[in-house]
Design a protein around this nucleic acid. Structure first.
Lengths: 149, 149
DNA sequence: TAACATTTAATGTATATACATTTATTTAAT
DNA sequence: ATTAAATAAATGTATATACATTAAATGTTA
């Protein structure tokens, strides 16, 4: 459905302004879908993002600031997210011996298992791949990168 | 800068997964920029969205649910946003006489003036139009619409 | 080495958000 | 007309978020 209809606005100041709004709207659509899928697993999209970062480094541990650098939303509060995941036993946290300011974080077996289950559900949400060719997806990726400069 | 570098992840499961992450990241980038511009004016991006909707209808008043339908983020809590804007005297709120459940909301002169000032600042943030041609912006718009199905 | 700067992570705080529930009013059905 | 259903908006509540500040450890330099 065209963005004009989605938000009942049939005129935009420019194609650029429309693009900004379209990105905000599409983000909202995507996040809502992801949140719904993750809800039964008891984690938020941000927590999911942290888990995936840790899986990417597994079985290595990485520091909190290292996680932050890799996060989609850099401004968020990584310490608290990590603590939430620790409470659920999805990750482990150990103070780094070489530099006692740092905290080494590592995904647990339980965390990896959760990601496996989530993957199945995420695969079920295949609207994007149903509606776009791989070439089209690639085109958007290139243009978004270009847009941010 | 390519999304791979932005989040230090050099491999993606698919071009579709990369697209999902790219949209989340670009949204974050866009929202952070907008928030910064709006901050001196004392309003959040969501409040700005409501003001723009009301400007679009001005001098007509529209109901809270009518605003909600036009919002980018439909799940948000329009009542409270409207109340915040009323406290700042940027909008007016009157109970509808024909249907006393409804509340008619209208942007004030002060609200319109604020939008004018914001516009100047928003125009200064022209990264998008600097980096993309109008045709490219249009291409993304069409593909995002297609993607959501 | 003492004083200061920087880095890393945690915490404080105000606001925002998602989602469920409640309240008031109007519409529909028996 | 009385009861039930539907709608509009507001509120409750737990969590998330942005951003500033603090605390602890490490680096730097005079």
């Amino acid at each position: 459905m065209k963005i004009e209809e989605e938000i009942k606005q049939n005129k935009f100041y420019s194609e650029y302004q429309k693009l900004a709004i379209n990105i905000l709207f599409t983000n909202q659509w995507l996040t809502a879908n992801t949140t719904k899928i993750l809800k039964p697993f008891g984690i938020s999209p941000q927590q999911y993002n942290v888990l995936r970062i840790l899986k990417g480094q597994s079985p290595k541990a990485i520091s909190v600031s290292n996680i932050m650098e890799r996060m989609i939303d850099k401004m968020s509060n990584t310490s608290r997210l990590v603590e939430k995941l620790r409470q659920k036993e999805l990750i482990e946290r150990v103070t780094c011996e070489k530099d006692r300011r740092q905290v080494d974080v590592k995904i647990t077996k339980k965390g990896l298992e959760l990601l496996e289950k989530v993957k199945t559900e995420m695969n079920a949400f295949k609207t994007i791949s149903d509606n776009l060719t791989e070439k089209e997806a690639s085109t958007i990726n290139d243009l978004l990168d270009k847009m941010r400069g």
